[in-house]
Design a protein around this nucleic acid. Structure first.
Length: 339
DNA sequence: CAGAAGCA
DNA sequence: TGCTTCTGG
């Protein structure tokens, strides 16, 4: 899952307000997956409507987008297309993890250990086609645009930051840096305290911004070199990385030799992966070219009707929409004062 | 996850 | 009022 570049990059804490009036390309899969994983009851089960269809993603999208729009942030969601064929092994690996977690979940439930049950249930999270369809339809009622990427969503999101159509790409995965995003935002949520699982402690989660050029300058590397570092550590396209090589060693080796082909001690292992193609996925990914990103007004009635059909309480939807309306009115007032 | 409710 | 816990669907 993603790439362990955490210790190599400079991250600057910021706030959601800092993104007011900016277009942010959101890695839709990444965001929705997190809603599906975390919006659950104490038993670990997701929220569902009267027909038993999962609604956790809709709940997450509702509140988060209301917050974005209230602050004048312009989100554009980028959905994944067909994964690169090199990702097959990683996809299988994730499937297996979910299978194992399902067994552990059932065991924990049988033993009445609800804390574990919840933890393992989260690990079984998977995204179904219906959820993608739901999310796109729901975004449309919000007037929020979405883009269907031909392949990895992150790559198209990164592309938009380079065409100037988006200020930053929002994802929890560091891959966006290798994809060439100008800026990456992590924790792109209303900041707040988050509970550490099982522990009785909380941490403050603030949005953090990563400027790719600053990262490259600070480690004195080119993007090509950083991609090779990534491949040494392990990417979605070679999930195991290289034996006995973590971030520190990877950096040292690339600093010394510049590229994978020139590191003597890894040549045998290097033959086992298609590193040229992995580089290509990061350097020249298949992306969607977008003419214009259009934001529409929120269709309050549409949002209400859609969520009522999915068993959301009318009162809750109404008060959430009122909050949005109030915030937008206040915004236009502030704007009027200028003229 | 994020808002609502509960509580000092 | 601010912090913790509960609930949503």
């Amino acid at each position: 899952m993603g790439l362990n570049l955490k210790e190599l990059v400079i991250r600057e804490k910021t706030t959601l307000e800092a993104f007011s009036n900016k277009v942010i390309a959101i890695d839709a899969y990444n965001a929705i997956y997190q809603f599906l994983a975390s919006i659950r009851g104490p038993d670990g089960l997701q929220l569902t409507d009267a027909e038993g269809r999962i609604t956790s993603h809709l709940s997450g999208l509702l509140y988060r987008n209301v917050n974005f729009l209230s602050l004048g942030i312009k989100p554009v969601y980028v959905f994944d297309g067909k994964p690169p064929s090199l990702k097959t092994a990683e996809i299988e690996r994730r499937k297996q993890i979910k299978k194992d977690a399902t067994v552990k979940y059932e065991k924990a439930v049988a033993e009445g250990n609800m804390e574990d049950a919840r933890k393992f249930a989260q690990q079984t999270t998977s995204m179904k086609d219906g959820m993608v369809k739901d999310s796109k339809e729901f975004l449309t009622y919000f007037g929020i645009p979405y883009i269907e990427a031909p392949s990895e969503g992150e790559a198209t999101a990164a592309h938009l930051t380079n065409t100037g159509q988006a200020y930053a790409s929002a994802s929890q995965d560091y891959d966006s840096i290798l994809c060439g995003a100008k800026r990456l935002v992590r924790n792109f949520t209303s900041s707040g305290r988050r509970k550490i699982p099982n522990r009785n402690t909380y941490i403050d989660v603030l949005p953090e911004i990563i400027e790719t050029q600053k990262v490259l300058d600070s480690i004195e590397m080119t993007r090509e070199e950083l991609i090779d570092v990534g491949i040494l550590i392990g990417t979605d396209f070679n999930p195991n990385g290289f034996e006995r090589i973590g971030p520190k060693t990877a950096m040292k080796l690339i600093k010394q030799h510049s590229r994978l082909e020139d590191i003597p001690q890894i040549q045998e292992q290097l033959e086992e992966i298609d590193f040229q193609q992995i580089r290509e996925i990061f350097l020249n990914p298949e992306v969607a070219d977008v003419d214009e990103i259009v934001f529409n007004d929120v269709d309050h009635e549409g949002v209400m009707k859609y969520l009522k059909e999915r068993s959301f309480s009318e009162d809750r939807i109404q008060s959430t929409l009122n909050r949005l309306k109030k915030a937008l009115e206040k915004k236009s007032q502030n704007l009027d004062q200028w003229f």
